[in-house]
Design a binder for these strands. Structure first.
Lengths: 341, 341
DNA sequence: CTGAAAGCGCTTACAG
DNA sequence: CTGAAAGCGCTTACAG
């Protein structure tokens, strides 16, 4: 069992179009035609014979050869800040599913929201002849936007949008508005915001939709109560501490991600504040986790998996020569005990 | 700006070895040699000239052609149950980093711990000429193990091991032991276990190391207090509820994942039990989250990122013709407020 | 050190 | 409907 123990196995001779053709006594082009998705210019009988033989021999088309010949790799690349962010892993899940369904495979790369890493990963993927990109790490700064112009293949932004670019997002302005209306309805007037990364359209729009709605209702949120950062737990901890240090009387905090909201809750707990009696907390994304927290978290369902599948479908349409438009999915507020006891 | 809005850009003519050779007035084989990682049989001067031209023209090697010619794709495949499990995304992060460092790219696929999905994804990756596999979704059942024998390429198990197979894991027996010793030291004698998936070596070994240690100390854990399930939050919620229903007097619960531990905490909270005064809770993996929970979670650091990098390095050694051995990393207990107030 | 040639496995016009 | 041929871009023995 040596072969098993060292993780390798004897490699059996490769089955190719040529070997099948030889065995069947036909030309390799006939075999190729018979094995194409929608066989054309071959008799039904030949198709059947060839496919049976292919199946029997365990034929597996060599994608490298096909790619070299056709210029299409049936591979796409995806960039995200970090896959350990469950929200981003969810979007990838959707992309992956839609990819497989269409006969594609997706490379996914962690870029840590750094322009240099993204540049490197995009280059590597381009060298691998990807047919397109799903970019879920768009940044509203020059370097990041400039990179898009260098891409020589179709691409779609996912989750985070940019003005004038093809994208599939959730309507984050509406999401922020839903949260504001909910908190206003509960009587909150002194509210803090853990804004997340304001260079990501998600953080920016969720915050803006939220603040605009409060503003329309005549509720002011002073600048120092809107703290930018990242979307992780630590950022929530620190931003909340900052808000509560300058404004101990806030009655509610809105975080633009569930992870940050968990950090906010930790800070409140450390300070001995009860949730939601002393301070209400709202998150964003409605991860599975939100429901199961010690204090279940009110959050906005941002349909992350759907964002992924739709982004991939849009990309496929683009690759196929179509002209799809941008898509904005409707978010939905899910109310739980962190705002309503 | 039409080109930008629809996500595509005019495709400039491809730079190939042939086009560079023409431009430089040398043979394509010379260009190929000059551009190889460790140029051999070319003058230093030629290397310099060629590389300058390549850089200047923005040459990018066509991986499909190289793969077709050499039979190596510099691509590996990885399977995980689900990337939305932060623990698994962490392992992927390590694999990804080590891959890139070595000039490789990794495909990662969600298999949901289902043999049929895994079979399908492995086949697809095989068709893409992957040079090897990192398998992080091994199951101790026949179907899953049998599949490994069909793989015609080098492969390494990561995180979850199987007897007699090459693997890179954390020593889960020791991890379980560390938890047991900790709880014993705190005086706990009535303890429940949220065992997770017992078909995964992680869940099985962590539970076994834990129970064996208690047994050696003369502490019995009746079967009904050891509840199998998955590694997610929901499983933690349900398993804890089951334990507490049959045995309301337990003073500690060990969950084999942090996610499940969070579920356990939620259940305790719903029942009005204080953590750790009434019931102590221990998790596993030491995710970033553990530290920031309302009650910081005692957990075992399982060095997930390292498992990923080491698994990839082991695979590369195997691909390179070496005979690496299995690796078992040392876990470390991180004590926090969920066991010690 | 450099060149000329073969060939990896596939798809696809072009004949017949 | 089937065959024969060309060629995608690369690497690598084989000459010189």
């Amino acid at each position: 069992m040596q072969g098993k123990q060292d993780g390798t196995l004897r490699r059996s001779p490769t089955v190719t179009l040529a070997s099948l053709a030889r065995e069947l006594g036909v030309n390799v082009s006939t075999v190729s035609r018979a094995l194409s998705e929608r066989p054309t210019g071959v008799s039904a009988a030949t198709v059947a014979t060839v496919r049976r033989a292919a199946e029997q021999r365990g034929y597996r088309r060599n994608l490298a050869a096909r790619t070299l010949r056709t210029g299409r790799s049936f591979t796409v690349g995806m960039t995200v800040a970090r896959l350990t962010d469950v929200a981003l892993a969810s979007v990838y899940g959707g992309v992956d599913e839609a990819s497989i369904h269409a006969g594609y495979t997706t490379f996914v790369a962690n870029t840590l929201d750094r322009a240099d890493l993204r540049r490197r990963r995009l280059d590597l993927m381009l060298g691998r002849q990807v047919d397109g990109f799903v970019l879920a790490d768009s940044h509203l700064d020059g370097a990041a936007i400039g990179q898009l112009d260098d891409l020589r293949v179709p691409h779609v932004l996912a989750l985070r949008g940019l003005p004038g670019r093809l994208s599939v997002t959730t309507d984050d302005l509406v999401g922020g508005r839903l949260v504001a209306e909910h908190l206003l309805g509960l009587g909150h007037r002194r509210i803090g915001v853990v804004a997340g990364d304001v260079l990501a359209s998600t953080g920016e729009q969720r915050t803006r939709g939220f603040l605009d709605t409060l503003d329309e209702a005549g509720v002011d949120v002073p600048q120092h109560r809107v703290v930018p950062g990242l979307f992780d737990v630590r950022s929530g901890v620190e931003s909340a501490a900052q808000i509560l240090a300058t404004d101990p009387d806030v009655t509610a905090i809105f975080a633009t991600s569930d992870a940050a909201a968990i950090g906010v809750m930790a800070t409140l707990r450390d300070l001995g504040r009860r949730i939601p009696e002393d301070v209400a907390v709202v998150g964003y994304n409605n991860l599975d986790l939100a429901e199961a927290l010690p204090v279940p978290l009110t959050s906005v369902d941002s349909r992350l998996f759907d964002v992924g599948t739709q982004a991939m479908r849009t990309l496929l349409e683009l690759i196929g020569g179509g002209s799809p438009g941008s898509l904005s999915l409707e978010p939905r507020l899910v109310v739980r005990a962190s705002t309503v006891p």
